[in-house]
Amino acid sequence: MIWAGVLVASAACYALKLAGLSLPQAWLGNPRLQRTVPLIPIALLAALVGTQTFSTGQHLVVDVRAAALVVAVIAVMLRAPFLLVVAAAAATAALLRFL
């Protein structure tokens, strides 16, 4: 089942890239579409941050992941590189569980 999702999603992502290079400019040139599409990653990434920090399955929870997110926010504000942001968050969670 995971394989099917991986392959279908990969095909969809490739089709979107190919469409951009192939379709006539006018099809994707609609100004409202041009303004809206860049908002989608902002909303989805923010939703992912929220749901993956504060839930387990369908239950809302506050656990060490919230502390890890605070550390990640600080790291991002200090303009730390990507890997450091992720590692700092993971280390925070690991450390708090260990204590």
């Binding site: 999702g5 890239k17 469409a19 860049p38 989805l44 990434l45």
Partner: peptide, 20 residues
């Protein structure tokens, strides 16, 4: 995985505008 696939495709929509 299908909810994940849908989210992946939605996030990939910006690449169409890059292609443009």
């Amino acid at each position: 995985v299908w909810a994940g696939a849908a989210a992946a495709a939605l996030l990939g929509s910006r690449n169409a505008l890059y292609g443009l």
